[in-house]
Write a protein that binds this DNA or RNA. Sequence first.
DNA 1: CGGATATTTGACGAATCTCAATAGGCGTGG
DNA 2: CCACGCCTATTGAGATTCGTCAAATATCCG
Lengths: 217, 217
Amino acid sequence: MSICGVLDKDEIEEFVKILTRQTCTAHDPIIDEGEPADFVFNVTGGAVKLFKLLPDGRRQITGFLFEGDFLGIAMNDTYSYSAEAVGDAHMCRFNRRKFEALLDRFPKLERRLLGMASNELAQAQDQMLLLGRKTAREKLCTFLLSLSRRSEKRGYDPSVISVPMSRNDIGDYLGLTTETVSRTFTNLKKDGVIRLLEGNRVKINDAEQLQDLAEGA
Amino acid sequence: MSICGVLDKDEIEEFVKILTRQTCTAHDPIIDEGEPADFVFNVTGGAVKLFKLLPDGRRQITGFLFEGDFLGIAMNDTYSYSAEAVGDAHMCRFNRRKFEALLDRFPKLERRLLGMASNELAQAQDQMLLLGRKTAREKLCTFLLSLSRRSEKRGYDPSVISVPMSRNDIGDYLGLTTETVSRTFTNLKKDGVIRLLEGNRVKINDAEQLQDLAEGA
DNA sequence: CGGATATTTGACGAATCTCAATAGGCGTGG
DNA sequence: CCACGCCTATTGAGATTCGTCAAATATCCG
């Protein structure tokens, strides 16, 4: 587990004692915005989406979590967003009270959480730039690039990425409609930037070109 | 200073020792994206805007800071955004290394920073929802409402808010153009939702209506 | 194979942007 | 104190990107 990288064996033991393993299937609600934030989670497999809703049903996905990602760093009294699994997802669940008690005992963990929150904040700012100022094409290229970088960081081939989420989810993440996402995929394909493979995978033909397209350069 | 609310007199002394006071005028760069993050700041007066740029000059303002707000919670090696004063702004500057050294001595401060980061993260998610899914009118209402709430929290009349930033800044914060911001102000005025007063102030006629408009209800 | 769901494609419309002109504010200096 | 000039805000007209609605196609899974 990524948050535990700074802990030694005995310390990890303490966490294992208080965790519950759980599996969620697609559309399975994990947490609901506004509910008391009684648990924090660590994703151990699959993908999870975080989102907020407007009263009329419009949805903004604020992030996708993958193996190793932590859900609930921002610990206010209530959850500020909802979460559900993209496909099937596996997670460790911690009672928040017990989790915080352990935090007190391992101050280096607190420092680490602050670091993770910093990263999330930086990511959130990138996403604001994307949502507020990028075109549909730039948005999709940015998205594919971030998936590619994530793949690379986990030791996979960055030029062939798995895109497990639906067009609709991608749209709700990028501030676009399903149709625009689909059309933009088609355009990128036509322009030779990417190739669509079976199994929801995408081949990136020229990462540098993708990078330029992502920034409107 | 807001971050120091958890400290006692002697502890605050330690911070005062390492701070430098500085004043910035409009468009004065405070920090630049990509530069080494050698300093952290606390705003003591005026307003500051945080923003990111695309290569062609498109700009996204990711947040406004006011008195008491802290700049640099997200402490990576380099700044992930730029900052400049809106009008004139006053700030305390801390050497980051020394600041972090003090953090080690006051663990409750670290907990507090994590709390502040959590709040910022929640705010960032709200802003993503706004940027990705709200209409121009909803965006502006949300913005005015947040200024009103901020005013209220500081003990001012929430129905008359000061809007010190330019239409252009508001546009870059809401993902709109100057013209659309201006037009939307005009519409809200025409519909009796707000009234424009001199001195860049805005009178909110019906806060509840504004709330509804902000969420598309 | 068949039904359900997701994706793609097309035609059209609307919100917002762009470009351009006008009006308003504010400070400076005569 | 007024006039000028600069900068920002407002308003207008037309263009464009993206959204909406609808239909066709593809994919998944039992």
